[in-house]
């Protein structure tokens, strides 16, 4: 375990640690609050922080902290899942483009270019209009939106590595393509790919928050950071934490990971 932490530290993958932190918060955060996020616990709406409600209450008098923890859970898990989809599919296709026959690269390259030319919000609106706003639909939509980007990054990386002599030597030895991909190419892509995963994660947080803010993302009774902001728009006039805190959390989440990514790539 210590060795693992050492390894993380020595490779400066703070961004990864940060993502793990948010994941833990998403998984266990809601257990920390005794309030039920859905229950109306107080008569006063948009109340200021108090001992009973640490972050005050929202527009229906529900506990903001409980809802916030719940919102974080949805935002983080949803975005994590969609990032997982986009990065694994993207990496798979990127490596396939480099190692398989030339037409694979031509085809995937065209597709990626096509997808990249559609504005992501527009594409999301379109898909959601057709398939609805179920969690699965959201994950898949966001996954598809960010796949071309991950594909491009991984293709460029794999292309660079595949031309190095140790890959040539492995090919000359007669190693199978899966071995070359898994043992020779992938391990050397890991570092830069982590940066990419972090970036895609940030993008999806922003996109999901946008969608939810527009009312077509996560639907009640579920709550995420974006929909919290929308619900509590009225609270802006009162400076209510119910509206401000989710905004701040989105900021901390994205900017924090971004900074960690910058510091890690700067040191490489």
């Amino acid at each position: 375990m210590i060795a693992m932490i050492e390894k993380f530290r020595s490779r400066h993958d703070r961004a990864l640690l940060l993502i793990v932190f948010w994941l833990l918060l998403a998984l266990f955060g809601p257990l920390c609050s005794s309030h039920d996020p859905g229950a109306i616990g107080s008569q006063s709406v948009f109340s200021a922080p108090s001992v009973a409600h640490l972050l005050g209450t929202d527009y229906l008098g529900r506990d903001t902290l409980a809802r916030l923890l719940n919102g974080i859970r949805h935002t983080v898990l949803l975005c994590f899942a969609s990032t997982l989809v986009s990065c694994s599919v993207g990496t798979f296709l990127g490596i396939a483009a480099v190692t398989a026959r030339p037409w694979v690269e031509a085809l995937t390259g065209r597709l990626a270019d096509g997808f990249l030319s559609i504005p992501s919000l527009l594409f999301a609106l379109l898909v959601i209009a057709v398939f609805g706003t179920s969690t699965t639909a959201l994950i898949v939509t966001m996954g598809v939106i960010y796949t071309p980007g991950a594909y491009r990054t991984s293709r460029a990386l794999a292309q660079r590595i595949a031309r190095l002599d140790f890959v040539t030597v492995a090919r000359a030895r007669g190693e199978s393509t899966p071995y070359i991909i898994l043992q020779e190419i992938l391990p050397n892509m890991a570092g830069p790919m982590i940066t990419d995963v972090g970036l895609r994660f940030i993008y999806s947080v922003l996109l999901l928050s946008n969608l939810s803010f527009l009312g077509i993302g996560v639907q009640p009774p579920k709550v995420d950071l974006g929909s919290m902001v929308r619900e509590n728009m009225l609270g802006m006039a009162y400076g209510s934490p119910a509206m401000i805190v989710p905004v701040v959390v989105i900021g901390i989440l994205t900017v924090g990971i971004n900074l960690a990514l910058d510091s890690s790539s700067g040191r490489r």
Binding site: D165, T168, A172, Q183, A190
Partner: peptide, 28 residues
């Protein structure tokens, strides 16, 4: 094409490549 050679042929003929910096997998 190296893939079409027999394992023995591949074994008997070995290549030591030019660039000492890139001939070894850096993560192994």
């Amino acid at each position: 094409n190296v893939r079409e050679r027999t394992p023995d042929q591949r074994r008997h003929l070995q290549l030591v490549a030019q660039n000492a910096d890139s001939v070894l997998n850096p993560s192994k």
